[in-house]
Computed example of a mutant assay.
Amino acid sequence: MPLEIHELLLVFVVILSVLGLQIFLSLREGKYWGLIMPVLFLIYSLYNLSKTTLFSELTSGYYKFGLVLQASIPTIMLIAVYFICRKIRNK
């Protein structure tokens, strides 16, 4: 079932809000503020990953690697934003 336009806009607004909050936290004076969002996303992705692999009938190594990679994408992106913002702040 495809997303309707208002659902797609809501997803877009949430993604922009998370990125905006990450940029705001990363540009603060304390360097650990910017690590809050990546840690939360990492915990959430590990929880979903453990829940999926425990109850999944697919035990292929490629399937599990794909799940790990897919679950890590938001965390990797937020960490990249963190390092970019810290580099800008330190200049």
Rank of each mutant, 00 (worst) to 15 (best):
W33S: 08
S60H: 05
L67M: 05
S26K: 09
L40W: 13
F83W: 05
L69S: 07
S26P: 14
N48P: 11
F12V: 12
E7R: 02
L27P: 04
Q22K: 04
S60D: 13
S45P: 06
K51C: 15
Q70F: 15
L42T: 14
L16N: 11
V39N: 11
I23Q: 03
M37T: 13
I5F: 00
Y82W: 15
L46I: 09
V11H: 09
L67C: 07
V18A: 09
V13P: 03
L46Y: 05
M1W: 05
V11D: 07
L21H: 10
W33P: 01
W33H: 15
L3S: 13
S26E: 13
M1C: 05
L58G: 08
S60M: 02
V11K: 14
G20M: 08
L27R: 10
L58R: 13
L9W: 05
L19I: 11
V81N: 00
A71V: 04
L8G: 00
I79M: 02
L27C: 10
V11C: 11
V81S: 00
L21N: 09
S17R: 11
P2E: 04
W33N: 13
L19E: 00
P38Q: 06
V13T: 03
S72G: 06
L19D: 01
T53A: 12
K31M: 11
Y63V: 12
L46R: 00
I73V: 13
L46W: 05
K87D: 07
L78Y: 02
G30I: 15
I43T: 15
L8C: 02
L58S: 10
L10Q: 08
L25H: 06
F12A: 12
H6K: 14
T75Q: 03
V68A: 13
Y82T: 07
S56W: 06
K87P: 00
Y62F: 10
L67W: 03
C85A: 07
L27Q: 12
I36A: 12
L8W: 05
M77H: 04
F12Y: 06
Y63W: 14
G66P: 07
Y62Q: 14
T75R: 04
L8S: 07
I36N: 06
S60R: 03
A71Y: 02
T53D: 10
A71P: 03
L25G: 09
L9N: 08
I5W: 01
E7P: 03
L67R: 00
S72F: 03
K31C: 13
I43Y: 08
G34V: 04
W33D: 15
S60P: 01
I76D: 02
H6R: 13
C85E: 02
M77R: 02
N48H: 15
M1R: 03
T59S: 07
A80S: 04
S26C: 13
L78S: 00
I84W: 01
S17A: 11
L40N: 10
C85K: 05
T75M: 09
V81I: 14
L46V: 10
L40Y: 11
K91S: 06
S56C: 07
I79N: 00
Q22W: 08
V18W: 01
I79Q: 01
T52D: 14
L16M: 09
F41K: 02
F41R: 05
H6C: 09
I76E: 02
S56H: 06
L35T: 02
T75V: 05
P38R: 01
V39E: 11
T52E: 15
G66H: 05
N48I: 12
K64M: 09
